[in-house]
Every structure is written in C-alpha cells, then in structure tokens.
C-alpha cells in the first residue's frame, strides 16, 4: 500500500507528534505507544496525503510557516478590521456580489490553501469551485470591481503567489 518509505516516515512522525501533543506527557512508554499508533494509521493514509514525495523538503516547510505567521497576524487583522467597521457603523456601505476569480495552480493542496485563505479572511467567502474552468466563485462584501482579473488582483493574488511558492515550482 505504501509507495514511498520517505513519505511514510514523515506522515508517521506528524501523527506521532499529534499523539504526543494531545496526550500531554513525554515518556518512553508514550513514545512507543505513539509510534505504534502513528505508523499504523500512516500506513492507511500515506498515499492519500502525499502524491509526490519528492516535493517534501525543509525549504517549503519554512515558507509555509512564514506564510502562516504573516497570514494570522497582518492579513487577518486588516480583514477583521474592515468587517468589524461594517458591523458597528449605523449605516454600513455594503456592495455584495458574487465574482469569478480564476486561479493558475494545479496542485490540489494549493487550490485548497487559496480557497481556505480566502474564506478565513472575513469579507470574502468561496461559494463554489469550478475545477474544469479553473475558477473560484467568491461572495465579496465590498465589491469594488466585478471583472475577473481585477477581482483576482484584489482578492487572491497574494495568496496565490505564496501557494505557488509552497506547493509548486
């Protein structure tokens, strides 16, 4: 079932880490039990999680961590502030619209990263994904533009460049 030993080891170690984090204590017995649990679950799910093991390396992981740090401090703060202003103002000026945002990545994790980043920032929610037309349909609270490319520049250009760095290229 497992195609690559390298990917298997990495998935097993991730699951072992989750086991130890949840259990909350580190000792010899916990490590043995966690290794048994983690590697046996990884045996089922490795091929589901990782399709191309050659892409796993530390550089991508560090970019992912940098992106997560920037996302959860700067980008989220800006987006929260704009929607909080809209909630608290007595007469909010809303321009809701569903716009089409094309994307130019092909890896499934990259698409999901872009979509979740868009949905997790208040103000934009992904309503549908069209896999054959390579576009996300986004409900946008402050729609300044409605054309595809312009909307892409406003909504997802930054996420897409990060996702390309992490999962492709």
């Amino acid at each position: 079932m497992v195609k690559s030993i390298y990917a298997y080891l990495i998935v097993g170690l991730i699951l072992l880490g989750i086991y130890i984090l949840y259990t909350g204590s580190v000792s010899m017995m916990e490590l043995i039990l966690g290794a048994i649990v983690g590697f046996s679950v990884a045996y089922i799910f490795t091929d589901e999680w990782i399709k191309k093991p050659s892409k796993l390396n530390l550089r991508r992981l560090s970019i992912l961590i940098a992106y997560a740090l920037k996302y959860f401090t700067v980008i989220e703060a800006k987006a929260h502030w704009s929607v909080v202003k809209a909630i608290l103002s007595p007469k909010p000026s809303l321009k809701p619209a569903i716009v089409r945002v094309p994307y130019r990545v092909s890896d499934e994790y990259a698409i999901v990263t872009i979509a979740n980043s868009i949905t997790n920032t208040p103000g934009t929610v992904v309503v549908d994904v069209s896999e054959d037309k390579k576009a996300l349909f986004v409900h946008w609270l402050f729609a300044e533009v409605t054309e595809d490319e312009e909307a892409r520049k406003h909504i997802s250009a930054e996420f897409e460049s990060w996702a390309k760095l992490i999962f492709e290229g």
């Binding site: 998935v11 699951l15 989750i18 086991y19 949840y22 259990t23 649990v37 983690g38 679950v41 990884a42 089922i44 799910f45 999680w49």
Partner: peptide, 9 residues
C-alpha cells in the same frame, strides 16, 4: 487521521 489518532489516544 487526526481524529483517528485522538480516538486511539
């Protein structure tokens, strides 16, 4: 898999 690991724990 995360849920499965938690349940085993």
């Amino acid at each position: 898999p995360i849920i499965i690991v938690v349940s085993l724990s």
